[in-house]
Design a binder for these strands. Structure first.
Lengths: 199, 199
DNA sequence: GCTGAATGAGAACAAAAGGAGAACATTACA
DNA sequence: TGTAATGTTCTCCTTTTGTTCTCATTCAGC
């Protein structure tokens, strides 16, 4: 059981690691807790290590790792159920919370803000964010970030044709599908998610 | 686990490759990170290769390849920029990463899975998730979870009328707006976000 | 009073992190 | 083919970081 101050150090470690994905430096911990000396901070870290809450890689910058016992609060929201017009909210059995990090966070992903209405019929509106996984191949029908002639980047549905050519389809009936020779189109990533904020 | 500077090199590699389709030159990395020596940059690349995050084709210009293992940060994804049909990805100045936990997670929020097409014209499709903030009041035009007569829960746009009554509008032209006396409608929450997974 | 735990400051040191630049080999390209 | 650009390998340097000390202060409990 850590002391009061030790617990504050641990709380900050959790918050920092959740936010940045790596441990803070001793100086950052000290500044946040208004401690003037790195030596003092280090004493707390050693105490936390002695209790099995963290592991310290000696002499390494940011060499602190949280152990299972001290795992950060998960990135979850309660999932209340399904909502449909005209009926009460239905509870979803067996799924009472949803881990957003499973949906979104994975290696090699990044976010793009969408400009324009080219995917509006797939529910991707101007200003929405899409989560893209960096990949060079994609399945037929996937929404991809494609680079045409090494210059123009677009968000389109991918269709591979039998003759080897590639058709890129917008989800907007005012925009005709475009067909390209295979070597003109390079897939940069596949859209694996989308989100939007109303604030 | 890369050092601070090594991680910045990796972030730049990811952003550059996603944007240009090929790796940068050492001098480009150096200029972006304000490093004066190519030798220093090369040391970072070798460290990243030793950790299995990238592969280097020896002596080749732009001979860096990202490996799948390249680690992402939990809850934080890089924001590469804006994408629009017919133009390269534009960088967004001053916003190079998005903290999804700040975006979505708050103690008074929950997630609902949407069933049906009542909000399809607002880009909320069947099966999408909406993030709802628990509140009893809402601004005009907000998308709300409303309870009608204490029984039916629906997802609709809210419109407060001058006579005190309330109109709930679906975003679907086949569904007519419905008008209710104020005491029949109770706002349960306001939609603050929406997301979708393509897996 | 006395004691011990908790907390803090700061000095001193070794190692890591970060950088500059020279020198050379190889590649890219007009 | 020849020249500039690029990648690669060094060594030397400064700053930052982690680490280990000692000393001081406060406070609770006996």
């Amino acid at each position: 059981m850590p002391t009061d101050r030790g617990r504050e150090v641990l709380d900050f470690l959790r918050a920092y690691i959740a936010r940045h994905g790596r441990a803070p430096k001793l100086r950052e911990i000290a500044r946040h807790l208004e401690i003037g000396s790195r030596g003092t901070v280090h004493r707390y870290l050693r105490a936390l290590e002695a209790e099995g809450l963290i592991a310290i890689e000696p002499a390494r910058a940011r060499g602190v790792r949280l152990r299972r016992k001290a795992a950060a609060r998960p990135f979850v929201l309660p999932l209340l159920g399904r909502i449909a017009a005209g009926r009460p909210i239905e509870a979803v059995p067996g799924a009472d919370e949803i881990d957003l990090s499973e949906f979104f966070v994975a290696p090699n992903r990044f976010v793009l803000r969408v400009a324009g209405d080219s995917m509006v019929e797939d529910g991707i509106l101007d200003g929405d964010m899409v989560i893209v996984e960096w990949r060079e191949t994609a399945d037929n029908g996937a929404i991809v970030v494609a680079l045409i002639d090494g210059q123009e980047a677009t968000l389109k549905r991918l269709q591979k044709n039998h003759d080897g050519s590639v058709t890129l389809r917008a989800a907007n009936s005012t925009m005709p599908p475009m067909r390209y020779a295979a070597d003109r189109v390079r897939v940069q990533g596949v859209v694996v998610g989308q989100f939007r904020s109303y604030r």
